[in-house]
Design a protein around this nucleic acid. Structure first.
Lengths: 349, 349
DNA sequence: GTTGTATTAGGAATCGTTTAAAGATAACCA
DNA sequence: TGGTTATCTTTAAACGATTCCTAATACAAC
């Protein structure tokens, strides 16, 4: 099947003009007489002419499309972020090409190659949990490709970054647990290599220290695949449950881990929050319906997508690389529900 | 910022050859001597040459990208479907450009225009709930644009379609409710205009009729925006609750409506399943964690995306329009959990 | 010595568009 | 008449790649 579009030549031929006259008439050039313009515009309208974006791209040496790499699309946080990315991109006439790393640095590399070979004008990335070598991004960036990192940022590369104040998010959540009477709080994080894992762990330990609680390394666990694999969450929970002194609450430091922990706790018949308090990062809009309604740290995913895209377009459209780059840190939102209910009330009730 | 890619000219200049020779060497043409080929290939490899896809698109008159229109990305069903679409597209070297209608036919029209003006090679669509006029799709299709409809299909246009046996899904679910002792089963559907709403309603009424239950129109409600607006779900539920003879179970006929109904029922303090049984279409992987664990009809979203894309690529790459089009109907999966527990047990317990 | 035929390479057109530069026409002035 | 200006339009080159056509060279066959 072939879809044949109308070209400027068709108009020129039909009207007995040259293609350049038509082109100029369409772009409202001062060199073209009002009558000719009118003629051309009306005819173009009539036959539903649209300039061929591919020819334009070739001429202008830019594709008006941006690439996005995230761990997975079917994830509340990322799909909300993509939503934000698309909204700004579309407003500015850009396409968005999405690809998924599925937390594998190999797939991330393949996607990176694919995207650059598709001649994108810029790139928005939340790196995979596995990635420790950022040279691919580095090289591309040094060769002039505008890149914005969001969510999982890369400190090694000096460009625009959009993130959430992860430290504060987990600090607040840990404080909240502590104030609600939980004494032994465990933290389950994603990959050690991710900046957000480190930041979130740091928020957790700071809060504990501030409350005068000794930080116990046996309560700090990592799931290298960020909960994408069920087994790693099971192992983490089982490890916590097998401790001589079990924790009485868990803070889950990423989306998939939050629901993952609850799932495993349920399967192990540990009631939440009676036996184990739970709070975690999550962007699902179903958390309030869950049993028990989950206390969460919610990230402004949509907004993160919007801001990342604005920054990227700014880079793309500016003549020369900006001298200083921004790292925007947005505030997370702590939503308290049943899963982290006050300990005293549980004891009392 | 400008990212400068290597071109065939750079190679030609560096090696003292013409661009045509380089081009032929790269494509392993018989007209080029082995030595020249080797020279060119090695140099191309060295400077990391990739042919400019935009120039290729212009030459070949195809963009190797396909458009997708869905209601919203941040929705389990659609994000899973997009996942499937992307996987097949990428395997075949195609980009995917996604746009959202947000259940508005106006936005759908705008997106349709945008996508066609971006010279896509084909289109995968799940129409918006609001759309009643399919002439935009019709015209495009008649002018030779390959289109595949999935999920919400358009019977008026004769092309490939991928859907789920919606009739069977709601038939089975209604039967299940009935067998579990529910006597007065209400159905809450999305827009009347959608084929899937009609099919699902038909499955519901068939099951009732088969069980010897008289179909009561006051138990069959529609939410024009498919539950995207909370208020319409509230109105539907309140309407059911204000009936002289209240229903004892609800079957929700789309993703957003299923969780939407539960949300409203909770806010009205109607316990599920004790006061009201609930089952519905859903693709969220959180339904088992919900209170109560939701009985659902799950659609093979990922697979639907894969199949739609395969069919589309087949159309794009075939020389002439296929004479007969397929309508693939996949089987939904009924997953029974607590929200539709047996009535007798509830009475007994 | 002419013709034929591989073999290898280059020139130029092409895809759809923009745009610098040049060309055409008419009007005006001296 | 010729020159200048103003106004409008066309020619041609360019973006990066492919490909049809032509060309050069070498060598064999007649």
């Amino acid at each position: 099947m072939k879809f044949e579009a109308v070209t400027i030549k068709d108009i020129a031929r039909a009207l007995g003009l040259s293609t350049s006259t038509v082109s100029r008439a369409l772009r409202d050039s001062y060199e073209i007489s009002p009558e000719t313009k009118k003629l051309v515009l009306e005819y173009a309208e009539k036959i539903n002419y649209h300039p061929n974006p591919i020819a334009l791209s070739l001429k202008e040496r830019r594709s008006r499309s941006i690439g996005v790499i995230v761990a997975e699309i079917a994830n509340s946080f990322f799909s909300q972020a993509i939503d934000g990315i698309e909204s700004i991109a579309y407003q500015n006439g850009y396409n968005v090409i999405i690809s998924q790393s599925r937390e594998s640095s190999e797939r991330e590399g393949i996607n990176l190659n694919y995207l650059t070979s598709r001649s994108i004008d810029g790139l928005i990335v939340s790196v995979s949990a596995e990635t420790t070598d950022f040279s691919g991004f580095r090289e591309l960036f040094d060769r002039g490709m505008p890149i914005v990192f969001f969510d999982r940022i890369v400190s090694e590369i000096n460009t625009h970054k959009v993130t959430v104040d992860s430290y504060r998010g987990s600090y607040d959540a840990t404080m909240h647990l502590s104030k609600n009477g939980y004494k032994r709080i465990a933290a389950v994080a994603g990959s050690k290599y991710l900046s957000i894992s480190r930041d979130r762990m740091a928020g957790y330990t700071s809060a504990l220290t501030e409350m005068g609680i000794v930080v116990d390394p046996s309560l700090m666990l990592h799931c290298p695949h960020g909960g994408l694999i069920r087994q790693e969450v099971e192992e983490a929970i089982d490890q916590l449950l097998s401790l001589p002194e079990q924790p009485d609450a868990i803070i889950a430091l990423s989306d998939k881990l939050t629901t993952g922990c609850l799932r495993v706790l349920k399967s192990r018949n540990i009631s939440v929050p009676e036996k184990m308090g739970l709070i975690g990062f999550s962007n699902s809009d179903l958390t309030e319906l869950i049993d028990p309604p989950l206390s969460i740290i919610k990230q402004p995913a949509f907004e993160m997508g919007e801001i990342s895209t604005s920054l990227l377009l700014q880079m793309i459209e500016s003549k020369r690389p900006p001298t200083d780059f921004e790292t925007k840190s947005l505030a997370p939102q702590l939503i308290v529900r049943e899963s982290s209910r006050e300990r005293a009330m549980i004891d009392g009730g």
